[in-house]
Each structure stands twice: as structure tokens, then as C-alpha cells.
Design a protein around this nucleic acid. Structure first.
Length: 221
DNA sequence: TAGGCCATCTGGTCCT
DNA sequence: AGGACCAGATGGCCTA
């Protein structure tokens, strides 16, 4: 269960992926080794770590490479002629335009990844070098659930304020459901108190329902 | 080795 | 026309 161990114990408890029922995991290689490096020799082409770059990418990314046309043609043949960038352009112009489009797309994806990194930075899970980075899908799902939890916390807070404004003291219970101060324990998705659940990995401890992200969900404790 | 996750390339579509 | 966005294809790396 390394996937879930890679997160703080309860990080996944509210996580589920019901749309397709797929069991996503957070298992990943050490992301620190990836990163996005400085621009490569091709100008604005980022120097993606060679270890992650497909061979064809390496060839076609280097604008100065003598093999790039071969690679381009190979890919074009593989995919069939299709509609090239602009059939009225000369091949050299086509190639140049294609490279520019590729670079733009690469930048766009890097921006997207930067935004995801920003999201990872603000959602609560164990951030440490020994913990794998959340996958993209896990990041989005966790963020969604975190937002929902925060909204719920806000609502609890409003109820508490309204209650206090009616002249009641803090000593009295606010609602039928017992609340720890400010109701946080009831709404915070990763509280240590939510350690009991049907899943051996405690992933369903908070939501009370098995997480599709946890392979151990449904197993007998 | 299979499965998960990812980066990149590519063609298509829509928008400005 | 050019840029942004999207989805499919491909191949590499990592882990169980």
C-alpha cells in the first residue's frame, strides 16, 4: 500500500473518483528528479530531463539536430498525411511553424503543471522529501474535497456566530452534532481523530465511504 | 512484466 | 492568421 502511505495517513479519506470508478493512486517516482529545467539549446525549448524525454522527443526537440526531419517524417508517416500545418507552406516553413507550435504547447503544459504545483502547495497533505508528490488527478480531487470541507467549515462557523449572537455561551453545545472548538474536527478532512474506519489504510475514515483511490478499501481490516 | 503516471508531439477546433 | 485549448498517440520511468 505504498500509494497511500505516500500521503499523510488520512489524506485520501475523502478522496474518491466516482466518475469512472477507476482506482487512482498517488504512486509516483521521485518527482524532484523531474522538474522543468532551464531552456535548452533550442532557445525557448525547455530542457526537459533526458531521462523522461522520449527518444523521438529528444530528436525532434533539438531544432539544430540533423535528425529532426527524419523524425518528423517518421511521425508523419506513422500518423498518415492528415492535414499538415499548412499545405501551402514550403516544407521548411511548415517545419518551423510546427516547432513553434510544439514549443508553445510545451510552455502551456508547463504553466499548467506550475499551477498544479501551486495547488499542491496549499492543500493539506504531507509535504516532505520522503513523500511522493500527489499525482495530477489526486491533486485535483483532493483540492475539490478540501474546498468542500472548507465551505462546510465556514457554514459551521456561521451557525456558531449566529448562535453566540443569540446570547448563548460557548459552553453550550451548538448543534445536535458535537463540535470541537469551531467545529474544525468535524470538517477538517485530515484530522488525526478520524483514524477509525473500515479501510486498513484509514482512507475512508472521514467520509465513511470507501475510497476508489484505495486498493485496500473493501478489504477486511 | 503490467499498470500507473507523465512529457511530448501532433492535428483539429474554436476564438480573437 | 495566429494563438489557445483539447484529445489521441507514443514512449519513458517507476513501482508492485
Amino acid at each position: 500500500m505504498a500509494e497511500l502511505k505516500s500521503l499523510s495517513g488520512d489524506a485520501y479519506l475523502a478522496l474518491s473518483y466516482t466518475a469512472t470508478g477507476h482506482a487512482y493512486t498517488a504512486a509516483r517516482g521521485p518527482e524532484t528528479a523531474r522538474g522543468f529545467g532551464a531552456s535548452g539549446p533550442g532557445g525557448d525549448l525547455p530542457a526537459a530531463p533526458a531521462s523522461r524525454v522520449p527518444a523521438a522527443t529528444v530528436e525532434s526537440s533539438g531544432e539544430q539536430s540533423g535528425d529532426e526531419d527524419d523524425t518528423f517524417e517518421r511521425r508523419r508517416r506513422r500518423r498518415g498525411p492528415g492535414v499538415s500545418v499548412d499545405t501551402r507552406r514550403r516544407p521548411r516553413e511548415q517545419r518551423s511553424l510546427r516547432l513553434s507550435i510544439n514549443a508553445r504547447e510545451r510552455r502551456r503544459m508547463h504553466d499548467l503543471n506550475d499551477a498544479l504545483d501551486g495547488l499542491r502547495a496549499v492543500i493539506p497533505y504531507a509535504h516532505s522529501p520522503s513523500v511522493r508528490k500527489l499525482s495530477k488527478i489526486a491533486t485535483l480531487l483532493l483540492a475539490k474535497n478540501y474546498i468542500l470541507m472548507q465551505a462546510q467549515a465556514l457554514e459551521e462557523m456561521r451557525r456558531l456566530v449566529a448562535y453566540l449572537n443569540q446570547g448563548h455561551g460557548l459552553a453550550a453545545p451548538v448543534a445536535a452534532t458535537p463540535l470541537t472548538p469551531f467545529g474544525q474536527a468535524a470538517v477538517y478532512p485530515f484530522s488525526a481523530g478520524a483514524a477509525l474506519g473500515p479501510c486498513p489504510d484509514k482512507c475512508a475514515a472521514f467520509s465513511g465511504s470507501p475510497s476508489a483511490l484505495c486498493k485496500h478499501c473493501g478489504e477486511k481490516p
